[in-house]
Design a protein around this nucleic acid. Structure first.
Lengths: 359, 359
DNA sequence: TTGTAGGCGTTATCAT
DNA sequence: ATGATAACGCCTACAA
């Protein structure tokens, strides 16, 4: 017994059934004021009884807008979704988007191409996050006539952008360690997705590195090149980085990680190496993700308003979409600040240090 | 000096410029075999020089498909995106979707309505996750003719579903505690989003509760109703739950939390209450999110293949979309297993217990 | 207040 | 191998 699978009702079906024109049906949904109340009500009743819903694609085509915003990342969604930073950012973006009547579409490279992925997407504008230096494809996107906002990148100055004072935040973190007497400091940097951006001075890595250097320098400490290790933004990456440094003979008393997940990995490595934190080693993260407050010990880190970044990016983008006049780009920069918790403390004095029983 | 903002080139522009018909241009992109190689190449050249890209919305309308899958959650995106469980699930879904040539659209209630949100979305099918009991709106969605797969809910048996053996996993967790001698056990359950589903026997809460009960009962332990506390799926929720129980005079030696984030909150509450884990209290989570291995102490929990769930849901959905024959629904159930870590241990013996100095 | 007709940009059918 | 033409389903001046 096969169920009769009738095709989706169209606007014409409703019009016929209700004895009105297609226009009237359209008005009943989009412009009820232009119909007599009872007519509008009757039409909606017929529509409901037929199970009619305006076809969203046809609607987009006719209105020339999708009411959807794209969030573009250069890494695969399967990677990016497990990054708490990105989740938090998207959460903020979703909040603002919903408030403004837009939905969100997460976009990642399609068959390796950002441009192709964007071309397939039905969006009115795009937020680019986590971009490294000036990805050549991004220009291409803009030439497709899509409004665009950059997050954490000022590489393309003629586009609006939302930044955080990464350099200032990093400097405060470094000053914190230096002020506690640390002289041997290891930096766990973020590894670029595509092997570029080492001399990158615009991206967040370059900025944070500058901040770290400046903060340490203020106490006369110079950061050696071999004390900077790049790591993927994962717990295991952070752990491997500290492990590797230790095996290489480095003996830092302070660790500056460019992300909390890597700092958590470093915490784990310290535990494995039987290095007590913060007594023997201080570890400072970046971002202040939710879990940072619940590690052992709770993580000292640099807070940045990630959620707010998401909201702001959406607000700017929507303004550019809806404003007839394409104003000059907006560049906004939010503050970062140190959150001192328990993973950082005074540097161990290498004079009077007593180490367990062995001495 | 206003830049001339020329409108997006259309297929007709390319056709005119190349001196061919629109059909030929379309073939050059979608069906190159039906054109002479040189013609195809020439057309593509003209298209590129004009900056032409097929309009995705028009394309969807003509092809009657969007190559996009929806992931529907009853909670706002801003909430759901901060849930590591959901991130992990989506990550798996994104992986499978990309592999099969689909993109993903995250969908949450629009102005409070799931049905409205789905009606706005340009998708070929939908995965419903985190549903409580049988949400009335879901039936409505299906009546719109959209293929649908349910995750963690068997409430609608005529739709395909992906489940995990929640009852079995919960039972093993409870047996684990009971086997360690725990007799006073607190359960931190998941609070339903809409205040329903208390007697819900199909949802994951009902199933896990059944499993907990069965596992305890096997050791002769009965779970009292007041030892079950509902909590939102957040760290703070879990902490508040244990705090509240303590203030109410409950003195459990074992805690079974229905999610790792709540277990992490409980861990935090225990620390605040100066309860040593696992010496004085054992805590067992559920899900096995990434951070569970990095808490202090590392969390004993029930692992479920969340990522695999996402992949499987997509695979089933795509099969239903692309199969002409609407087969009978597929119900698949994955295994859950206990991961013993350091947050659980023998119950404190209330006879020989020595408590710090105070005794 | 309601209806008519044209347009949105593409793909698909069918003829040549 | 290529081209004319009709869907696809809706919105919206403009006319009545």
């Amino acid at each position: 017994l096969a169920t009769t699978r009738s095709r989706r009702p169209r606007i014409a079906d409703v019009a016929r059934e209700a004895g009105v024109s297609k226009t009237a049906v359209s008005f009943a949904f989009n412009n009820p004021d232009r119909l007599s109340p009872e007519t509008a009500e009757r039409i909606r009743g017929v529509a409901e009884s037929l199970g009619y819903q305006p076809h969203p694609v046809a609607r987009m085509l006719a209105q020339q807008r999708t009411s959807t915003l794209g969030v573009l990342t250069p890494q695969p969604l399967s990677v990016v979704l497990e990054n708490p930073f990105f989740s938090l950012f998207s959460s903020g973006a979703a909040l603002a988007a919903g408030r403004l009547g837009y939905s969100l579409q997460l976009i990642s490279p399609f068959h390796g191409s950002l441009a192709r992925a964007v071309a397939r997407a039905t969006i009115d504008g795009v937020i680019v996050v986590g971009l490294w230096a000036d990805h050549p494809e991004v220009e291409q996107i803009h030439q497709a006539g899509l409004p665009m906002v950059l997050v954490d990148s000022s590489a393309l100055p003629h586009h609006s952008s939302v930044m955080v004072d990464d350099e200032g935040g990093a400097r405060v973190a470094a000053e914190h360690l230096a002020g506690l007497g640390h002289r041997d400091v290891l930096v766990i940097a973020i590894e670029p997705p595509q092997p570029a951006g080492l001399g990158d001075t615009e991206g967040i890595v370059g900025q944070r590195l500058r901040g770290y250097r400046a903060g340490l320098q203020s106490a006369g400490v110079v950061l050696a090149d071999e004390a900077v290790i790049a790591s993927p933004v994962t717990i295991d990456g952070g752990r491997a980085a500290l492990m590797q440094a230790w095996e290489d003979g480095l003996r830092p008393t302070g660790v500056l990680a460019m992300g909390d997940v890597m700092a958590i990995g470093a915490l784990q490595a310290a535990r494995d190496l039987r290095i007590e934190v913060p007594r023997m080693m201080s570890i400072v993260g970046f971002d202040d993700i939710e879990f940072a407050a619940y590690t052992d010990p709770p993580l000292t880190t640099v807070h940045q308003p990630v959620r707010r970044k998401g909201e702001l990016a959406v607000e700017i983008l929507v303004a550019e979409i809806e404003d007839e006049a394409p104003d000059r780009p907006v560049h906004s920069c939010l503050e970062a600040r140190l959150i001192p918790r328990a993973s950082s403390g005074p540097a161990p004095s290498n004079t009077g240090e007593v180490r367990g029983v062995a001495i």
